[in-house]
Nucleic acid binder design. Sequence first.
DNA 1: GGCAAACAAAACAAATATGTTTGGTTTATC
DNA 2: GATAAACCAAACATATTTGTTTTGTTTGCC
Lengths: 78, 78
Amino acid sequence: MADDLKNFKLKLGKRIKQIRESKNLTQPELGALINKDYQSIGRIENGRVNPSAYLIFQIAKALDVSMGEVFDISLLDE
Amino acid sequence: MADDLKNFKLKLGKRIKQIRESKNLTQPELGALINKDYQSIGRIENGRVNPSAYLIFQIAKALDVSMGEVFDISLLDE
DNA sequence: GGCAAACAAAACAAATATGTTTGGTTTATC
DNA sequence: GATAAACCAAACATATTTGTTTTGTTTGCC
């Protein structure tokens, strides 16, 4: 309850990493697609931040997946 | 291009307002469901902020819709 | 061993979201 | 007219994300 947020960040990060790797992209490559440093991608994937909706939207577009796939409830609710 | 973000915020806000009203909830009522002030809801609905992914996630849960429904591409890309 | 790429992580400044209060508008009810 | 509810919007302090740089680790290749 108190760390629903911490859990959310970790699961969202893992999900994005999972999708990125399934597309055979590196963090620097994904970053380049959305004009971001690879560290910004890394921070999200490692669950260190609660990213903005727009940033996830950009990442989803770059990875060519829907927001529904990124936020797949069954994967996020463990 | 330069204001993709501005566009995103406005469309996301309208979409959330649309869903909230379809559930016959007021901003104060939705806010109460996620322990937020109604002003925070209003700011999002009026496209004044780029909310965090977790906040949208909470709102989607409170409105009982999937993230895919909130970020419906056809509605967001106009 | 030496080198480069990919990644994790920390630190810093700058930009932005969030929490909160306040004022104002509209609508409806009495 | 008075009151209340819903909403928009601005302002402020605080917290957090974001952009950027830096350090270190691991892996693979030469």
